[in-house]
Amino acid sequence: MFNALRTDQLLIGIGSVLRAAADRGAALEDYERSQLLSAYSVARLLAAENVAAPAMLTWIKGELGPVLGDQEAQMAEAGSSIAVGEQLSLLFEQMPADDPRRPEIHRILREMADREVAALAAIPE
């Protein structure tokens, strides 16, 4: 959800590894082979993430909305998971330590982490 590097940056990276392998005129060394395998893994995980991303965003906004109260409208406008993360980080900064919303948000973030890991495991065929 709160992940650095956009899809386009990752696709460019995969392409660069493929190009470097194609340009090499000799057998691949261990390091180069590991680069190719990592690029393959990035492609598969990115595919899994992209399949799940829209539903994940809708889900977390739906869960957080009622907990946030007067900040619900602001969260509803968040157009990406990165924007959700930014808003939550700012909210935690301003929130008193004993704010009853804190454990509720933690519970949602825990479920988000579970869902995200499960989504990455479901690599599309």
Partner: peptide
């Protein structure tokens, strides 16, 4: 590209 790949490790560590 292994450094980019670590992006997919972070959800599990968050968990």
């Amino acid at each position: 590209i292994r450094l980019a790949w670590t992006r997919f490790v972070l959800p599990g560590i968050r968990q």
